[in-house]
């Protein structure tokens, strides 16, 4: 037999590599759709099992987004605080001294972007600052196209 089918481990690794690309694309703006993923990896199209697993993953991710979206809405002062964005030049209202926060952030319009977050509406205003409801901008348009 010269016919060589990839082992389960190799298949898993190929799939995971595609998923790494998916997550990275999502981080930098927008997750690719199923068709875009397959267009980037035409070699996968001949492997119905792998394509099926990609479909399943996209379904799982979509369901998770739907559920976690509800949690995001309650998480009103979330902030992206990874090590890598320490020297990020984007002004982040939650990093400003508290006294400055309300003043500088006081009159922001819905749709304003702060890093990964998009302001949706003002929720509360007090001596210590202004609180906005936000959505995660990198989730917009990231659902699979099916």
């Amino acid at each position: 037999m010269v016919d060589r089918t990839p082992s389960a481990d190799e298949e898993e690794d190929t799939l995971n590599q595609v998923l790494v690309e998916y997550f990275d694309a999502r981080d930098s703006g927008r997750g690719p759709t199923r068709d875009e993923m397959l267009a980037m990896h035409p070699e996968l199209i001949g492997d119905p099992d792998l394509v099926g697993q990609i479909d399943e993953f996209l379904n799982d991710q979509q369901l998770f987004d739907r559920f976690s979206d509800a949690l995001e809405m309650t998480n009103i002062v979330a902030e992206r605080d990874t090590a890598s964005c320490q020297d990020n030049a984007t002004p982040d209202p939650s990093r400003l001294p508290v006294a400055d926060r309300g003043r500088r952030a006081g009159n922001l319009k819905p749709g304003t972007l702060f890093g990964d977050y998009e302001l949706v509406e003002e929720i509360a205003r007090g001596g210590m600052g202004v609180v906005y409801k936000h959505g995660r901008s990198n989730l917009i348009g990231s659902s699979p196209s099916r």
């Binding site: 799939l15 995971n16 590599q17 998923l19 790494v20 799982d60 369901l63 998770f64």
Partner: peptide, 20 residues
């Protein structure tokens, strides 16, 4: 990185199964 993608994939799958 691929191992992390695998963790995320399996975690999402398990969540979906249980949430559904």
């Amino acid at each position: 990185s691929t191992a992390v993608a695998g963790l995320l994939k399996r975690g999402l799958k398990q969540l979906r199964q249980q949430l559904i």
